[in-house]
Amino acid sequence: QNKRVQALGGAKNHAVVLPDADIPGAVGALMGAAFGSCGQRCMAIPLVVAVGDGTADALIAGLRQQMAAMRVGPGSDNHNDMGPLVTQQHYQKVKGYIDQGV
């Protein structure tokens, strides 16, 4: 058959979590990579490959718990973990584009 398959080719950065990984550490790293900059950096990790059923289950459980505790809302509320923009510099850049459009 000589057929080729490109799997998981749509995402640019991958994380691979192996069965012997420190799951709480991996969960923390993935939360930071996925949500720490609100998608405003090129090194965000949009895709995780968990090796082994036990690894996947533990990782999903940890991520689910962390995401459930996360507060998302307006950037004006300092109690939120994530808002639409994460830095004043990026806010000014976006505001500049809006001002240009107006």
Rank of each mutant, 00 (worst) to 15 (best):
K3Y: 12
G28Q: 12
C42S: 00
L8M: 13
A15W: 02
G75S: 13
V102F: 11
Q65N: 11
A15L: 13
S37Y: 02
Q100A: 11
K93L: 09
Q66T: 07
K95M: 12
Q100D: 15
D53N: 12
G83V: 08
V48N: 08
T87F: 09
A7Q: 08
L18Q: 09
G75Y: 04
Q88A: 14
D57T: 10
I98N: 06
D57F: 02
G101V: 04
L63P: 03
A7I: 09
V86H: 10
V16R: 07
N78W: 08
H14M: 06
V51P: 05
G101L: 10
A7S: 10
P74I: 01
Q1E: 15
L47S: 11
G62S: 14
M43C: 04
Q65D: 15
I98E: 04
V5T: 12
Q1D: 15
A68C: 01
H14Q: 05
L8K: 04
M43A: 05
I60N: 10
N80Y: 06
G52Q: 07
D99P: 07
V49N: 06
G96Q: 13
V5D: 08
I60C: 13
Q89E: 08
A50M: 09
H79S: 15
G32D: 07
P84M: 08
Q89V: 03
A33L: 02
N78P: 15
V27W: 01
P19Y: 08
A44S: 09
D20R: 01
L8W: 05
D53S: 12
G54V: 00
G28T: 07
A61K: 13
A69T: 00
A68R: 04
I23M: 11
A69S: 11
A69V: 01
H90D: 03
L30H: 02
A61C: 12
A29N: 01
V49Q: 04
V72H: 04
Q1H: 14
D20N: 09
P24Q: 12
N78F: 09
A33S: 12
A44Q: 00
Y91W: 12
G9M: 06
N78A: 15
P24K: 12
M67L: 13
V102R: 15
D57G: 04
Q66L: 04
I60A: 15
L85F: 07
L63F: 08
A58V: 02
R64P: 01
I45Y: 02
Q88K: 10
G10K: 06
G62H: 13
P19S: 11
D77P: 06
K3C: 15
P46V: 03
V51F: 11
V72K: 05
P74A: 14
C42I: 03
P74C: 11
G73Q: 03
D53A: 15
T55E: 10
V49C: 11
V17A: 10
Q1W: 11
A7T: 07
